[in-house]
Amino acid sequence: MNKKVPRRQFITGACKLLAAGLAAPLGSLVVQGNRSLAASGEKSWPEIWDGKQWGFVVDTHKCIGCGRCVKACKQENKVPMDDEVYRTWVERYVETSDGVSIDSPNGGLNFPPLEEGGEKQFFAPKLCNQCEKPPCVQVCPVGATYRTGDGVILVDEKRCVGCRYCIQACPYGARFLHPETHVADKCTWCYHRVLRGMKPACVTVCPAGARKFGNLGDHNSEVAEIIETNRVRGLKPEKGTKPRVFYVGLDEVVM
């Protein structure tokens, strides 16, 4: 049988056939994608992302630990109120002569009053850091979690298999398995609101102005100005994740 078709001819033929077989569906996908965007008259994603790099600033001096952000977040993003899963939470640090005590009961939804005696006390709100080098995106086996062009990490809940590798990989404990959808879930900086020109729910409800959100690419934005004129730092810089949440007045004990 090998004698009838020369090997070289057979291989080139097979390669051509394979290439054609792959090109046809891929090509149609691209065409279809462009067509659906064009037909709806909407901007394409690169146009929407153009010139935008979202960033977040937390001023720990200003946070009063009221927990409104935690509640607003749960309501806005359909995170079950009673389950111990949080897209954002607030930690309370009390330093005494005995050391530091940290707590975040119910994610800081409703802190009980402090006892007397703390020498140094403050709150540290936490949320997804939307890292520039996100380990969660790196480890997702199916590519269900990805980084958008304007710097937000999202989860495709129709693709996520619920293996929870991303939860293990996140150094900040920002991810969880959603108790109802059984897929990975996390803070998106309320991407659905951001796309409509609004601010994340937690930023909107914060009565103290401890949470700021804006475009780092625009030097006139509030967040860019704070970062350029204050001493700020991200969490766990040693992990090399390059977080995009910048903390003003962050104490060393906050991990």
Partner: peptide, 12 residues
């Protein structure tokens, strides 16, 4: 001690 609120459940 203190654990992050999302760490209450063991995932694996």
């Amino acid at each position: 001690g203190f654990v992050y609120p999302n760490e209450v459940e063991i995932n694996w």
